[in-house]
């Protein structure tokens, strides 16, 4: 399936007007390469390395898709701001909810079934 799209883009590789000429196929190739790295990551059995390859690369790929495919940098500035604000709200939500949902115990409370204690 992907070879077919490559063939098409080879022929119709006209010059994109307006925004800077980005060779979409090159970006796509980078994305596939990064995907391969993130899939290969776990085979090295190093936990933190897998985390870096998995989530670090996911963030890089996300930024590349947003920048090159969605042209977010070419839109008026407020588009980037509202997307950033919604991400910050999600971070805020995570930060305030994690102490309750993630911890097995906190100030004056404990989840017995998590610590293996009898009810």
């Amino acid at each position: 399936m992907s070879e077919q799209s490559q063939a098409i883009s080879e022929t119709g590789d006209g010059h994109g007007e307006g925004h800077v000429e980005t060779n979409y196929v090159k970006i796509w190739a980078w994305l596939v390469g990064l995907l391969a790295v993130s899939v290969a990551g776990p085979f090295l059995e190093i936990f933190w390395l897998t985390m870096v390859t998995a989530f670090g690369i996911a963030c890089v790929k996300a930024w590349m898709v947003a920048k090159h495919f969605m042209h977010i940098t070419l839109e008026p500035r407020f588009v980037g701001y509202i997307v950033m604000t919604s991400l910050v709200f999600m971070l805020l939500f995570f930060a305030a909810v994690a102490p309750d949902v993630m911890n097995a115990e906190g100030t004056q409370w404990v989840k017995p079934s998590w610590l293996g204690q009898p009810e």
Partner: peptide, 9 residues
């Protein structure tokens, strides 16, 4: 009183 938690006060 939350089910699944033991709260002390």
């Amino acid at each position: 009183a939350i089910p699944g938690r033991l709260i002390t006060g």
